[in-house]
Computed example of a mutant assay.
Amino acid sequence: MPLNNPWLAEPAPTRRLTRDRLEERILNLLAGQNMCVLATSGADGPAATPVRYYSLEFAIMFTASPRSPKMRNIAADPRVSAGVFAPLTGLASSRGAQIFGRARVLGPDDPAQAPYWEAFRWENEHVERGRPVTEPPPETLVVIEPDRIVYTEHWLRRDGYAPRQFWRRDDE
C-alpha cells in the first residue's frame, strides 16, 4: 500500500536542530497560535484551563480574574505548564510545545506590565467589551517566562531530525 509520508514509518531520527533553528520554530508556533492549555496545581489537585494568550519572544501572557481557580492555584504554586499546539490533521502535521516555567502575576498598578502591553492585543478585547482603546486595561496580567520548552514537530522527521526537540533557558 502506498504511503503519503513514508518517512513516518521509519524509526524516528535522533538528530537535534541547532539552537537558532529550534528557537525560530518555537517562536513561529507561539506567534501563529493564540490558545493554550494552562496546567496548574492547587488544593483540589491539577487543573487544565484553556487560555487565550499573546507572546513576546518566548514568554506567553494572558489576563485573568484574580478570583479565578487558576489564579488561586498560581498563588499556591507558581510552577505551571502550558501546552500550545497547531491544528492537527494527521501525524505529519503534529506540531506543538510544552512550556514549563513560573507564572508571574503583575497587578494592575505594577509598572512591570508596560513592556508586555505593547505585545498584548488588548485593543481587541476593549472593542469586544465596548471600552475605549486609549489606554491599556487596568487588569491583572500573568506572564510565563519559560525555563524549558519541549517542542514537537513530526515534519522534522522528513529532514532527518528528531520529532521532539528540547530548549532550556540556561543553555544560552
Rank of each mutant, 00 (worst) to 15 (best):
D20V: 11
R21L: 08
L22D: 07
L22G: 05
E23N: 12
E24S: 07
E24R: 13
E24P: 01
R25K: 12
R25M: 05
N28Y: 09
L29F: 01
L29N: 03
L30P: 12
L30K: 06
L30Y: 09
L30I: 07
L30N: 11
G32N: 11
Q33K: 06
M35G: 01
M35Y: 08
C36P: 01
L38G: 01
L38I: 02
T40Q: 00
G42D: 08
A43I: 08
P46A: 14
A47I: 05
T49E: 02
P50Q: 01
V51Q: 02
R52C: 11
Y53V: 03
Y53C: 04
S55A: 15
S55P: 07
S55E: 04
L56I: 03
E57D: 15
E57M: 13
I60T: 03
M61D: 03
M61L: 11
F62H: 02
A64H: 07
A64E: 05
S65C: 05
P66R: 13
P66S: 10
R67F: 05
P69R: 15
K70N: 03
K70F: 00
M71D: 00
N73K: 03
N73L: 02
A75Q: 14
A76G: 06
D77P: 11
D77S: 12
V80N: 05
V80T: 06
V80L: 05
S81H: 09
S81C: 15
S81W: 06
A82I: 00
A82F: 03
G83R: 06
F85T: 13
P87D: 10
P87A: 08
L88M: 10
L88A: 06
L88C: 06
T89A: 15
T89C: 09
G90Q: 07
